[in-house]
Protein backbone atom coordinates (compact mmCIF):
# COMPACT_ATOMS: atom_id res chain seq x y z
CA UNK A 1 0.00 0.00 0.00
CA UNK A 2 1.35 3.40 -0.92
CA UNK A 3 -0.13 6.84 -0.38
CA UNK A 4 1.50 8.25 -3.54
CA UNK A 5 0.07 6.34 -6.46
CA UNK A 6 1.91 5.30 -9.57
CA UNK A 7 0.82 6.80 -12.86
CA UNK A 8 2.02 10.29 -11.93
CA UNK A 9 3.91 12.24 -14.56
CA UNK A 10 7.45 12.50 -13.17
CA UNK A 11 10.37 11.97 -15.55
CA UNK A 12 12.14 8.60 -15.25
CA UNK A 13 15.03 9.08 -12.85
CA UNK A 14 13.45 12.01 -10.96
CA UNK A 15 14.23 11.82 -7.27
CA UNK A 16 11.16 13.72 -6.10
CA UNK A 17 8.45 11.02 -6.18
CA UNK A 18 10.75 8.56 -4.45
CA UNK A 19 11.39 10.92 -1.56
CA UNK A 20 7.75 11.96 -1.30
CA UNK A 21 6.35 8.46 -1.40
CA UNK A 22 8.83 7.15 1.15
CA UNK A 23 7.99 9.96 3.55
CA UNK A 24 4.20 9.84 3.41
CA UNK A 25 4.24 6.06 3.48
CA UNK A 26 6.46 6.22 6.56
CA UNK A 27 3.71 8.28 8.22
CA UNK A 28 1.21 5.64 7.17
CA UNK A 29 -0.75 8.31 5.34
CA UNK A 30 -1.42 10.22 8.55
CA UNK A 31 -0.32 13.57 7.28
CA UNK A 32 -1.56 16.71 5.55
CA UNK A 33 0.44 17.96 2.58
CA UNK A 34 0.71 21.55 1.37
CA UNK A 35 2.56 21.81 -1.91
CA UNK A 36 3.88 24.74 -3.92
CA UNK A 37 3.41 25.15 -7.66
CA UNK A 38 6.24 23.28 -9.34
CA UNK A 39 7.28 19.89 -10.65
CA UNK A 40 5.79 17.81 -7.85
CA UNK A 41 2.45 19.60 -8.05
CA UNK A 42 2.22 19.33 -11.82
CA UNK A 43 3.12 15.65 -11.98
CA UNK A 44 0.72 14.61 -9.22
CA UNK A 45 -2.35 16.81 -8.99
CA UNK A 46 -4.12 16.99 -12.31
CA UNK A 47 -7.89 17.12 -11.90
CA UNK A 48 -9.32 13.62 -11.85
CA UNK A 49 -5.89 12.01 -11.68
CA UNK A 50 -4.51 12.95 -8.29
CA UNK A 51 -1.73 10.68 -7.08
CA UNK A 52 -2.31 11.70 -3.49
CA UNK A 53 -3.75 9.29 -0.95
CA UNK A 54 -3.35 11.85 1.82
CA UNK A 55 -5.17 15.18 2.25
CA UNK A 56 -3.36 17.47 -0.16
CA UNK A 57 -3.60 21.16 -1.01
CA UNK A 58 -1.88 23.30 -3.57
CA UNK A 59 -2.65 27.01 -3.60
CA UNK A 60 0.17 29.06 -5.10
CA UNK A 61 3.89 28.98 -5.89
CA UNK A 62 4.96 31.09 -2.92
CA UNK A 63 2.56 30.23 -0.10
CA UNK A 64 2.78 26.57 1.00
CA UNK A 65 4.40 27.45 4.33
CA UNK A 66 1.50 29.78 5.17
CA UNK A 67 -1.12 27.35 3.92
CA UNK A 68 0.43 24.66 6.14
CA UNK A 69 0.40 27.09 9.06
CA UNK A 70 -3.32 27.55 8.42
CA UNK A 71 -3.95 23.81 8.35
CA UNK A 72 -2.08 23.38 11.61
CA UNK A 73 -3.94 26.26 13.25
CA UNK A 74 -7.28 24.90 12.09
CA UNK A 75 -6.47 21.43 13.40
CA UNK A 76 -5.64 23.00 16.77
CA UNK A 77 -8.77 25.14 16.88
CA UNK A 78 -10.99 22.23 15.87
CA UNK A 79 -9.39 19.78 18.32
CA UNK A 80 -8.10 17.57 15.48
CA UNK A 81 -4.38 17.92 16.17
CA UNK A 82 -3.89 14.15 16.49
CA UNK A 83 -5.20 13.45 13.02
CA UNK A 84 -1.78 13.74 11.38
CA UNK A 85 1.43 15.68 10.82
CA UNK A 86 1.40 18.78 8.68
CA UNK A 87 4.01 18.67 5.91
CA UNK A 88 5.10 21.03 3.18
CA UNK A 89 6.70 19.84 -0.02
CA UNK A 90 8.17 22.79 -1.89
CA UNK A 91 10.77 23.32 -4.57
CA UNK A 92 14.01 25.21 -4.04
CA UNK A 93 12.61 28.22 -5.91
CA UNK A 94 9.46 28.27 -3.81
CA UNK A 95 11.57 27.93 -0.68
CA UNK A 96 14.65 30.07 -1.11
CA UNK A 97 13.25 32.75 -3.41
CA UNK A 98 9.60 33.62 -3.89
CA UNK A 99 8.23 31.97 -0.74
CA UNK A 100 10.93 32.89 1.72
CA UNK A 101 8.80 35.58 3.38
CA UNK A 102 5.90 33.28 4.27
CA UNK A 103 8.43 30.57 5.15
CA UNK A 104 10.17 32.89 7.59
CA UNK A 105 6.80 33.81 9.07
CA UNK A 106 5.86 30.18 9.57
CA UNK A 107 9.25 29.45 11.18
CA UNK A 108 9.00 32.52 13.35
CA UNK A 109 5.54 31.65 14.66
CA UNK A 110 6.84 28.12 15.14
CA UNK A 111 3.86 26.27 13.71
CA UNK A 112 4.02 22.52 14.18
CA UNK A 113 4.93 21.92 10.54
CA UNK A 114 7.66 19.91 8.82
CA UNK A 115 8.80 21.94 5.82
CA UNK A 116 10.53 19.81 3.20
CA UNK A 117 12.42 21.54 0.43
CA UNK A 118 12.92 19.35 -2.64
CA UNK A 119 16.11 20.87 -3.94
CA UNK A 120 16.66 20.21 -7.64
CA UNK A 121 18.71 23.40 -7.81
CA UNK A 122 16.63 25.46 -10.24
CA UNK A 123 13.10 26.30 -11.37
CA UNK A 124 12.69 23.01 -13.18
CA UNK A 125 8.97 23.04 -13.78
CA UNK A 126 9.32 26.12 -15.95
CA UNK A 127 12.33 24.74 -17.80
CA UNK A 128 15.48 25.22 -15.72
CA UNK A 129 15.80 28.84 -14.67
CA UNK A 130 18.18 29.80 -11.87
CA UNK A 131 17.02 29.97 -8.24
CA UNK A 132 18.77 30.99 -5.05
CA UNK A 133 19.71 27.35 -4.61
CA UNK A 134 21.30 26.96 -8.04
CA UNK A 135 25.03 26.33 -7.53
CA UNK A 136 27.78 28.58 -8.83
CA UNK A 137 28.84 28.03 -12.42
CA UNK A 138 25.60 26.28 -13.26
CA UNK A 139 24.07 26.76 -16.68
CA UNK A 140 20.37 27.58 -16.61
CA UNK A 141 18.22 29.33 -19.19
CA UNK A 142 18.48 32.59 -17.23
CA UNK A 143 22.18 32.13 -16.48
CA UNK A 144 23.29 30.98 -19.90
CA UNK A 145 26.90 30.53 -20.87
CA UNK A 146 28.24 33.17 -23.22
CA UNK A 147 31.47 34.93 -24.12
CA UNK A 148 31.27 36.86 -20.86
CA UNK A 149 29.28 34.66 -18.55
CA UNK A 150 30.28 31.22 -17.24
CA UNK A 151 26.81 30.35 -15.88
CA UNK A 152 25.53 31.44 -12.47
CA UNK A 153 27.82 33.85 -10.64
CA UNK A 154 26.82 33.54 -7.01
CA UNK A 155 26.87 30.44 -4.83
CA UNK A 156 23.94 28.57 -3.27
CA UNK A 157 21.96 30.41 -0.63
CA UNK A 158 22.59 28.84 2.77
CA UNK A 159 19.02 27.85 3.65
CA UNK A 160 20.23 25.69 6.53
CA UNK A 161 21.78 28.75 8.17
CA UNK A 162 18.59 30.72 7.51
CA UNK A 163 16.49 27.97 9.08
CA UNK A 164 18.86 27.78 12.06
CA UNK A 165 18.68 31.53 12.51
CA UNK A 166 14.97 31.05 13.27
CA UNK A 167 15.96 28.85 16.25
CA UNK A 168 14.14 25.80 14.96
CA UNK A 169 14.15 22.60 16.97
CA UNK A 170 15.18 20.50 13.99
CA UNK A 171 17.05 21.37 10.78
CA UNK A 172 18.60 18.81 8.45
CA UNK A 173 19.68 18.07 4.93
CA UNK A 174 19.44 14.76 3.11
CA UNK A 175 19.80 13.34 -0.36
CA UNK A 176 17.63 11.08 -2.45
CA UNK A 177 20.82 9.02 -2.84
CA UNK A 178 20.22 7.82 0.73
CA UNK A 179 16.49 7.01 0.91
CA UNK A 180 16.53 5.34 4.32
CA UNK A 181 18.12 8.43 5.78
CA UNK A 182 15.43 10.62 4.22
CA UNK A 183 12.76 8.59 5.99
CA UNK A 184 14.65 8.49 9.27
CA UNK A 185 15.02 12.27 9.25
CA UNK A 186 11.38 12.92 8.40
CA UNK A 187 10.29 10.64 11.22
CA UNK A 188 12.78 12.16 13.60
CA UNK A 189 11.72 15.68 12.65
CA UNK A 190 8.06 15.22 13.54
CA UNK A 191 9.01 14.17 17.06
CA UNK A 192 9.86 17.82 17.67
CA UNK A 193 7.04 20.24 18.43
CA UNK A 194 7.16 23.35 16.27
CA UNK A 195 8.60 24.19 12.88
CA UNK A 196 11.17 21.87 11.27
CA UNK A 197 13.21 22.20 8.07
CA UNK A 198 14.44 19.33 5.92
CA UNK A 199 16.19 20.02 2.61
CA UNK A 200 16.53 17.08 0.24
CA UNK A 201 18.94 17.12 -2.69
CA UNK A 202 17.22 15.70 -5.73
CA UNK A 203 18.69 15.55 -9.25
CA UNK A 204 16.69 16.76 -12.22
CA UNK A 205 17.31 14.64 -15.29
CA UNK A 206 16.35 17.26 -17.86
CA UNK A 207 17.62 20.36 -16.08
CA UNK A 208 20.98 18.89 -15.12
CA UNK A 209 21.55 17.19 -18.46
CA UNK A 210 21.98 13.66 -17.13
CA UNK A 211 20.31 10.35 -17.87
CA UNK A 212 17.68 8.83 -15.60
CA UNK A 213 19.85 5.89 -14.59
CA UNK A 214 22.60 8.26 -13.38
CA UNK A 215 20.57 10.43 -11.08
CA UNK A 216 21.05 8.63 -7.78
CA UNK A 217 24.75 8.08 -8.51
CA UNK A 218 25.17 11.78 -9.22
CA UNK A 219 23.33 12.73 -6.04
CA UNK A 220 25.74 10.50 -4.13
CA UNK A 221 28.70 12.14 -5.84
CA UNK A 222 27.45 15.60 -4.83
CA UNK A 223 27.70 14.44 -1.25
CA UNK A 224 31.07 12.72 -1.70
CA UNK A 225 32.66 15.88 -3.09
CA UNK A 226 31.51 17.92 -0.10
CA UNK A 227 29.36 20.15 -2.29
CA UNK A 228 26.17 18.88 -0.63
CA UNK A 229 26.85 18.30 3.06
CA UNK A 230 24.37 16.05 4.82
CA UNK A 231 23.87 17.43 8.30
CA UNK A 232 21.46 17.27 11.20
CA UNK A 233 20.82 19.93 13.85
CA UNK A 234 18.73 19.64 16.97
CA UNK A 235 17.98 22.83 18.89
CA UNK A 236 20.71 24.58 16.94
CA UNK A 237 23.38 22.00 17.77
CA UNK A 238 25.01 19.97 15.01
CA UNK A 239 24.37 16.45 16.27
CA UNK A 240 25.16 14.28 13.32
CA UNK A 241 26.70 14.39 9.85
CA UNK A 242 26.99 11.76 7.15
CA UNK A 243 30.71 11.05 6.80
CA UNK A 244 32.46 10.99 3.45
CA UNK A 245 34.37 7.72 3.17
CA UNK A 246 36.31 8.67 0.06
CA UNK A 247 36.48 12.30 -0.94
CA UNK A 248 36.00 12.99 -4.65
CA UNK A 249 37.28 16.10 -6.46
CA UNK A 250 34.50 18.39 -7.66
CA UNK A 251 35.55 17.89 -11.32
CA UNK A 252 34.31 14.33 -11.13
CA UNK A 253 30.83 15.59 -10.22
CA UNK A 254 30.86 18.51 -12.68
CA UNK A 255 32.07 16.79 -15.81
CA UNK A 256 29.23 14.27 -16.01
CA UNK A 257 26.47 16.94 -16.04
CA UNK A 258 25.62 19.10 -19.01
CA UNK A 259 24.84 22.03 -16.71
CA UNK A 260 28.51 22.24 -15.64
CA UNK A 261 30.41 20.89 -18.63
CA UNK A 262 31.17 24.34 -20.09
CA UNK A 263 33.37 25.01 -17.06
CA UNK A 264 36.08 22.83 -18.61
CA UNK A 265 36.31 24.99 -21.76
CA UNK A 266 35.14 28.48 -20.77
CA UNK A 267 37.91 31.03 -20.10
CA UNK A 268 36.46 31.69 -16.63
CA UNK A 269 35.70 28.02 -15.97
CA UNK A 270 38.93 27.18 -14.21
CA UNK A 271 38.37 29.88 -11.61
CA UNK A 272 34.81 28.73 -11.05
CA UNK A 273 35.92 25.14 -10.56
CA UNK A 274 38.55 26.32 -8.09
CA UNK A 275 35.94 28.24 -6.15
CA UNK A 276 33.57 25.28 -6.15
CA UNK A 277 36.39 23.10 -4.82
CA UNK A 278 37.05 25.59 -2.06
CA UNK A 279 33.33 25.66 -1.19
CA UNK A 280 33.39 21.85 -0.96
CA UNK A 281 36.56 21.91 1.15
CA UNK A 282 35.07 24.51 3.43
CA UNK A 283 31.91 22.40 3.88
CA UNK A 284 34.07 19.42 4.79
CA UNK A 285 36.04 21.47 7.31
CA UNK A 286 33.07 23.28 8.78
CA UNK A 287 30.96 20.16 9.32
CA UNK A 288 33.86 17.77 9.85
CA UNK A 289 32.60 15.49 7.08
CA UNK A 290 35.68 13.26 6.78
CA UNK A 291 36.33 10.25 8.95
CA UNK A 292 34.51 7.15 10.06
CA UNK A 293 32.41 8.28 13.01
CA UNK A 294 28.78 9.06 12.21
CA UNK A 295 28.21 11.05 15.37
CA UNK A 296 29.93 14.42 15.65
Amino acid sequence: MTYFASGHGACPGCGIPVAVRNIIDAFDGKCFVANSTGCLEIISSQYGRSAWGVPYIHSLFENPAAVAAGIESALKALGRKDEGHVLVFAGDGATADIGIGPLSGMFDRNHDVLYICLDNEAYQNTGNQQSGLTPMGCLTTTTPVGKLMPGKIRQKKDMVAIALAHKLAYVATASVAFPREVVRKAKKAVEFEGAKYLQIHSPCVTGWGITGDQSFKIAKLAFETGLYPIVEFEHGELIRVRKIKEKRPVEEYLKIQKRFRHLFTHPKGEDVIKTLQSIADENIRRYNLMGTETEV
Binding site: E62, A66, A69, A74, A77
Partner: peptide, 19 residues
Protein backbone atom coordinates in the same frame (compact mmCIF):
# COMPACT_ATOMS: atom_id res chain seq x y z
CA UNK B 1 0.92 36.89 9.94
CA UNK B 2 4.13 38.21 8.38
CA UNK B 3 2.18 39.94 5.60
CA UNK B 4 -1.32 40.20 4.20
CA UNK B 5 -0.19 37.70 1.59
CA UNK B 6 0.66 35.34 4.44
CA UNK B 7 -2.55 36.14 6.31
CA UNK B 8 -4.73 35.23 3.34
CA UNK B 9 -2.66 32.11 2.67
CA UNK B 10 -3.01 30.94 6.25
CA UNK B 11 -6.76 31.33 5.90
CA UNK B 12 -6.69 29.26 2.71
CA UNK B 13 -5.13 26.39 4.69
CA UNK B 14 -7.46 26.93 7.64
CA UNK B 15 -10.63 27.20 5.60
CA UNK B 16 -9.74 24.13 3.54
CA UNK B 17 -9.34 22.23 6.82
CA UNK B 18 -12.87 23.19 7.82
CA UNK B 19 -12.25 26.23 10.01
Amino acid sequence: AESEFGAASILVGASATGA
